[in-house]
Design a protein around this nucleic acid. Structure first.
Lengths: 368, 368
DNA sequence: AACTCAGCTGTAATCGATTGCATTGAGGTG
DNA sequence: CACCTCAATGCAATCGATTACAGCTGAGTT
């Protein structure tokens, strides 16, 4: 069961292990003749480096760890896919962990990744506050980038989207469609994403004079079930407004379903919007108007930041970057577009509405 | 940036590294007094084992690798979640890789996992034939279990469901609902899952005298798009039968959508069934009748097999097991139940229709 | 002819944890 | 008191790859 080692290759080629290592890792000078012999021997024996041994020696693993709150949430899944793709281009591998939305499990995962000497960590924190100790502690030891969500009061790199700008687009669109009152359905304010999205929602609602009653802000979690529950509650209290602004697509799908189940037509009587643009938002009935996150771009920036941080090493790392990309509103059938023409869009390439590259440059963060 | 090593702990505690190791890994005898000193020192310094070093020495990593065709397919995602859960109970970690349905990428992933000395590998092969060399080669070197799909002609453990039995249930149900003709929409026969499902479909269709015209067997891939395309083709040829039997839920969702878009009512004019019972099949309009796979059970069996194989080690491993679980038909709104009462079911616990545990025992495989 | 230098290759230390074997010393036995 | 036993602990080898340093060789220089 044990594999071929560099020593066996060396013996077969009649050289030292040092020479074999030099050939195989393309470092140092080796004569053409010897190189051929070594490669030959390695091939014959089917040699493969022992990544573990190499990692111990080099303290580099070419592996990046990623921790997400829930692997069953399609948004994170596709984000993971993008990250894996981006890493693949650099010859790195991804070690994926699911925190089950529990900061304690998250802390364990982070520690475990660190113990495994990953070169860096990408994390979308499970909790806006409780995730702090583990995230900060990990960030102190190795390069770490927060993705999408971030933890209050941590000083690390971050990549995500401008939720406030996105919500402005959403509200403008709903307003165009005739909405004069709205409800917000999100998760508890323990996630920065809900916080930001709510802030954007509230601000623009005020500016547009869209009414939001206090009991029309409903906070639960990111799930279809919560969307259904929240709407049931609104309907029970006879408080269904013109529009339901949901903090993610899962909630929106649940909300839509609940409306229809109780005889409220979407979008004729109630407009509904989501956030993330997961695949199923396109398939839902009616297809969901939502905010498309430029996942590939987010992933690419995260990988770039990690690489930069690894290079900087112990050398005092510069200030931390906060990269905020502007997402795109994808108008489908769950809202009433007034005059705005429908824009079918599902890809990941830049779009007119997306910010030009220059707007997405890292913004230096004073407390970095 | 470098971490505390066992040597520093030893120095602080005034003992040798051997003693520290013995204390921390609970092996060998150590006096209570020394043990206390060592633990104290370790805590003070915040010592954490270097998993890499330990792995090099022990050639065990407490990590299991998993390779799936596509991480964005919700079925695999939830399977991954179940596997992670099952492994967690054993104190093992999961290293997840996405093969992008490409046997070449898959081969690279497998090699990379092996090089990383994972203790075992769980793979759902991307291709029924082309995946063979890599899978077999990997299986020769370390414990490997195939999940859900399997590669033709490989001798490894396998855990999955009895597709033929499942299809029998599906066909019986459709027949009860009045279907007298049917089409099958699947992926190319390059996946054992489609192969098996199609075999079950065809056999029962014959027995029940359900008509299946040659051009009503449509093979593409596991995606919503393909479901839509296939149905468009059937309609264009005026060959839409009473029932559409789809090889997975994604296809079924696409098929349903295409039917409705073209004015065919589901289930009134066309019945549609899926396979896997992904979360969105419940949310679709109409909610999808599908086959629920006992994911937790599948995952648990796979983990159990891996553990057993690891123990057996080089000692000639016994014959390989093929564990086949019986899945459950979940009747929802995309089919016409005749008299069968609707059975809402979304959990993972055993059900009357599921085979009793005893039926799921490993079946000795002669060529193991 | 003596010397320099570059290019190639080998020796051995190193990464951090584990463990077989040796050593120590306390307590027990005849 | 000499000798034995056994628990507790330390020494040093080990896992496999990398690499600083040293040694060797032969071509080029003066």
């Amino acid at each position: 069961m044990q594999r071929v080692t560099i020593a066996q290759v060396a013996e077969r080629a009649g050289v030292s292990t040092a020479t074999v290592s030099r050939v195989l890792s393309r470092r140092g000078q080796v004569s053409a003749a010897v190189e051929r012999k070594v490669r030959r021997a390695a091939d014959d024996l089917g040699y493969q480096v022992n990544v573990i041994a190499r990692a111990l020696r080099n303290s580099r693993t070419d592996t990046v760890g990623m921790v997400v709150p829930s692997i069953t949430n399609p948004f994170f899944t596709s984000l993971v896919e993008s990250v894996e793709h981006a890493l693949g281009k650099e010859g790195k591998e991804l070690f994926l962990c699911d925190a089950r939305s529990d900061p304690r499990i998250e802390a364990r995962r982070l520690a475990s990744l660190a113990a495994r000497n990953v070169d860096g960590i990408i994390v979308s924190p499970s909790h806006g506050v409780d995730s702090r100790p583990a995230v900060q502690q990990t960030a102190d030891r190795l390069p770490l980038v927060q993705l999408d969500r971030f933890v209050d009061g941590t000083t690390t790199d971050w990549v995500g989207v401008d939720d406030v700008a996105a919500m402005r687009q959403v509200m403008d669109h709903l307003h165009d469609g005739g909405a004069r009152s709205a409800a917000f359905i999100g998760s508890l304010m323990t996630h920065s994403s809900t916080e930001q999205r709510f802030a954007g929602f509230r601000r623009r609602a005020e500016e547009l004079n869209i009414e939001v009653k206090p009991d029309q802000v409903l906070l639960g979690d990111y799930s279809v079930e919560w969307g259904e529950t929240a709407v049931a509650r609104l309907i029970a209290e006879d408080a269904l407004p013109d529009a339901l602004v949901c903090a993610d697509d899962l909630i929106a799908l649940g909300a839509t379903r609940a409306c229809r189940a109780r005889g409220f037509a979407v979008p004729r009587q109630v407009q509904v919007t989501g956030y993330d643009d997961i695949e199923f938002s396109r398939l839902a009935e009616p297809a969901l108007t939502t905010v498309h996150q430029p996942r590939d771009r987010i992933a690419a920036e995260a990988v770039r930041l990690l690489a930069a941080a690894s290079l900087a090493k112990d050398a005092e790392r510069g200030p931390h970057a906060r990269i905020s990309l502007v997402p795109t509103l994808v108008v489908r059938d769950s809202t009433r577009a007034a005059q705005a023409p429908r824009t079918p869009y599902d890809g990941d390439s830049p779009r007119p509405q997306e910010a030009p590259t220059d707007d997405a440059r890292p913004q230096e963060d004073p407390d970095g």
